[in-house]
Amino acid sequence: MALVHGSATADATAGALHALIIGVGGYPFLSGGSAEKKLPDLHDFGNPGQLTSPPRSALAWVEAILDGRITWRLPIGSVDLLVSPAPTTDDPEFPAADYEVPTHNAIVTAFEGWRLRCDSHPDNVALFVFIGHGLQAVDTLVLPADFGERGSNPWPQAFNMTKTRKGFERNAAKTQLFVVDACRTMPMAVIESPDAGVPALAVPKTRQTVRWETDLTIYAASNGERAHGPHRAPSYLTQALLAGLRGGSARQHRNAWRVSTNSLAYSLSELMRIVGARHGQRVLPFNTGVEDWLVQVVEPTADLHVGCEPEAATASADLSWHHDKHPSRVREVRSAEQWVVQAVPAGFCRVEANFPEGDYESEPKPLFVDPPKVDQLIPVQPT
């Protein structure tokens, strides 16, 4: 069963979070796959092969949703998980379990059940995450685990995510979150067949009514570019989004800290840098409609980068951080580089620069820290 939490039927009396998480790493009919007969003309598709990051990413999403490290605004109604691990030779330490493989038919079935649950109440939050191979033709396409099984015409086994997202707009769930964590490269196969009639999971209609109030759709890569993830570890986008939901995108709302669709989209580029995304990966968040808060955070933290203005004074400064409810922190070694103070509590604090040699003077600098990162230069004056 793909359903790892909740019931196949939704409680229509109240809103809830309904998630469908798909991680495709094992592709039998692509390069390095287990099937004897592979997709013809693999090079025309960019020679796609096996992936170790998507299965780990999918498990990270489910673990983060279910283990309580993310406190959602709504109760968790259902979580669907489909995973195809890369071959054991590529990822021998992948946890042994019976996961439903995200073949074309399995994804269609899981999506339909998830769609109906999302459609059961207007206050629902719909979360869709796909991690695996993708291509960019006229629209963005993603590839299920059995892509290539049908030989020379594999396109009916792919999915058109652009049209799927458009078609899902008529779903009753007022808050809709779509994450497409896949490459959007343009190999020869899509150049020669830019509109090959790839099916959508939700077919858009010309006269459909748009029912969402909040839409956050995130693509892991820009047109023609690749998405990346460490070997045998969650993708950079997955790491960034989960870090944001755990508090890296929190903003203060009255006396509480919350992660909203707006704050998650706004902080995503910085979160990608913090988790170490490489290769110039450019994430594209499309944030539309009314801001909706998703997660409440008890005490978010941020990385604080502290230096002096002028910058030459940083090398001779004793830098310190102070908070009314936490022990102070002091830079132990002087350096010309900014001092990086990791995981400081968000909110009001102050930073100081003292100069034992008496070459500069300054006053404490009040500061409000917003996650995920704050840069602060303390103005100083030569004596």
Rank of each mutant, 00 (worst) to 15 (best):
A158K: 01
A126Y: 02
I107C: 00
L177W: 05
F94Q: 01
T175G: 05
A106R: 08
M161D: 09
E112T: 12
N124T: 13
P122E: 12
G197C: 09
P194V: 12
G197A: 05
D123P: 03
F147I: 14
T206F: 15
F147Q: 12
T103H: 07
Q136K: 12
R115A: 13
T140V: 14
D123F: 00
A172Q: 14
P156D: 08
A110N: 07
K166A: 15
P199C: 08
Q176P: 03
G148D: 11
F130V: 10
F130S: 08
A106K: 05
Q157E: 14
L201A: 09
T209N: 12
V79G: 11
Q176Y: 01
T89C: 07
S152N: 09
G113T: 09
V79T: 11
I76Y: 09
R150N: 14
P122G: 07
V108W: 07
R170G: 00
G77E: 09
T185L: 04
P122H: 10
W212A: 14
W212V: 03
S152E: 15
A96T: 15
A182P: 04
A106W: 02
D195S: 13
K163V: 00
E169M: 14
F94S: 01
D215S: 15
L135V: 09
D80F: 10
G134E: 07
E192L: 15
D123T: 01
R73L: 10
L74A: 12
G167F: 07
T209H: 11
E213A: 13
G77F: 05
A189I: 14
